[in-house]
Design a protein around this nucleic acid. Structure first.
Length: 470
DNA sequence: CTATGGCACGGATT
DNA sequence: AATCCGTGCCATAG
């Protein structure tokens, strides 16, 4: 036993642990912020340029071959799943620039969002409004939302708020429709207006989008119906319309099924933390699991900084030493975060492979505690790693990672399908009995709960007209 | 009288 | 220790 080993480790461990915890609970987006702020504050921290694989154009670690193209894909024999995640080094697959995912129209032309929108709007803008439009477009966040208020813009440009509104209204009509809105609801309203020219819009759509978006995302259709004094059926119609046609985040291409099992207030899913897809997007190919690290390039301690430390005085040197230590710590912690995520995802993806490649029905009941045990990690670690994170599935839907722990999703889906397929309206009791035949035993009351969770009407309000299908 | 939704309790989960 | 989920009981609507 070495007696002095604690000298080195004891001081770093507690800080290390605490920071790892913090980083682990961060989403990709939050981590990005954190890294960016550290980069600007800590001169010792360095971000080196990205490398791409010549074959697949994928981002690479600073040294070594491409993990996809050169790696023999035999992580597990009968589950051909490839895991990409940073270990020693960092790299990231950026969603927009990955050539396999041509999802955003302006990404394929490789111009940025502001230019893309401005190009469309240019013809309709008065020359004196061009600057204004450019200014507005440069104050969008990654979802395409306005980050400043109309009043601020007005003050800055010495223009009337109404003039600003006019320009914004014009910009909202550009692709991606609804861009420059300040809330998801506003964006969706803009989309409705645009759609109304080419298709019929269900009654009350505007009202519901404007005032009841929250309830829609929680599937509280009956409440909405009551407040608007309309039928639940109509609300459902609108809800379906919303999910199928509207996108609350204009600059993001996809809106996953926003069912929120944890009931928390976060019904907002933008940038996923993990990607799962088939290699080259061909179903049947191995699954690729990619953990997103929101930084382009490799994070490291700047060797030049380290070098130049030798040639400065004592007091300066110790101050710099601090920076280097902090940088090292941050990098280590991020590595650990990535490692924990990787461990977790490895298990998760294998267990829930059915769900990932199949449907909601195939979700396996799972608790965080089970996973924690198998990974020999603390339950709270799993909790932190899962909470708030999202994952993009091969079908391009973005769902919360917590969905893998949704015990009732599979049963809810079975119920939903059962109701869709049967010709005679089934009562809750009948559903319960049918489920029992499939080996699922739940209380009649629970059937009712699941049914309303899925926004399905009670039996007597559910007349099946023979002509309608789907 | 039957089916459903509301409230609340207890056990599991985090 | 706090929270979530399934369930039972009861009032109410059809």
């Amino acid at each position: 036993m070495l007696q002095h080993q604690w000298q080195v480790t004891s001081t770093t461990t507690s800080a290390h642990l605490a920071q790892t915890m913090t980083l682990l609970s961060m989403t990709a987006a939050e981590l990005q912020e954190k890294i960016e702020s550290e980069l600007s504050n800590n001169p010792a921290l360095d971000l080196v340029e990205e490398r791409r694989c010549p074959m697949c154009k994928r981002l690479l670690p600073p040294s070594g071959p491409c993990p996809i193209c050169s790696q023999p894909m035999s992580e597990t024999s009968d589950d051909p799943i490839v895991f990409i995640s940073p270990r020693e080094d960092f790299y990231t697959g950026s969603l927009a620039s990955s050539h396999e995912i041509p999802d955003e129209p302006y990404a394929s032309e490789s111009i940025d969002l502001p230019s893309y929108v401005l190009r469309q709007a240019a013809a309709d803008l008065r020359p004196e409004d061009r600057m204004l439009a450019a200014y507005i477009l440069n104050h969008l966040d990654e979802d395409g939302f306005l980050t400043i208020s109309v009043l601020e813009i007005a003050r800055y440009h010495h223009r009337l708020p109404s003039e600003i509104e006019e320009v914004i209204a014009l910009l909202k009509r550009c692709e991606p429709i609804g861009v420059c809105s300040s809330t998801p609801g506003e964006a969706m309203l803009a989309q409705i207006e645009s759609l109304s020219e080419v298709m019929p819009i269900p009654d009350l759509s505007r009202e519901i989008v404007r005032d009841h978006l929250q309830q829609v995302s929680q599937h509280h259709y009956n409440e909405i119906a009551k407040q608007l004094k309309t039928s639940v059926k109509q609300v459902q119609l609108v809800a379906t319309f919303i999910v199928e046609n509207l996108n609350p985040f204009p600059a993001r291409a996809h809106w996953g099924d926003v069912r929120n099992p944890s009931g928390s207030s976060s019904e907002v899913y933008h940038q996923p933390d993990v990607l799962v897809y088939y290699l080259n997007d061909k179903p049947g190919n191995p699954l690729v699991v990619e953990i997103i690290l929101p930084v382009r390039g490799t994070l490291r301690v700047n060797p030049l900084f380290k070098e130049s430390m030798k040639s400065v005085g004592e007091e300066q040197s110790s101050e710099w030493k601090d920076d280097i230590d902090k940088a090292n710590l941050l990098i280590k912690c991020i590595q650990q975060r990535s490692n924990a995520m990787k461990l977790l995802l490895e298990k998760l993806v294998v267990i829930q492979k059915g769900y990932i490649t199949g449907s909601d029905k195939d979700m396996v009941a799972l608790t965080r505690a089970t996973i924690a045990q198998e990974l020999e990690l603390h339950e709270s670690t799993i909790s932190r790693a899962v909470s708030g994170k999202t994952i993009q599935l091969p079908n391009r839907k973005i769902v919360p990672l917590a969905i893998f722990f949704d015990r009732s999703l599979s049963i809810r889906t079975i119920i939903k399908e059962m109701i869709e397929h049967e010709t005679t309206p089934l009562s809750d009791t009948e559903i319960k009995e049918r489920l029992e035949k499939d080996g699922i035993t739940i209380a009649r009351r629970t059937v009712a709960k699941y049914r309303s969770m899925e926004g399905i009407l009670p039996t007597h309000l559910r007349q099946k007209s023979p002509g309608s299908s789907g």
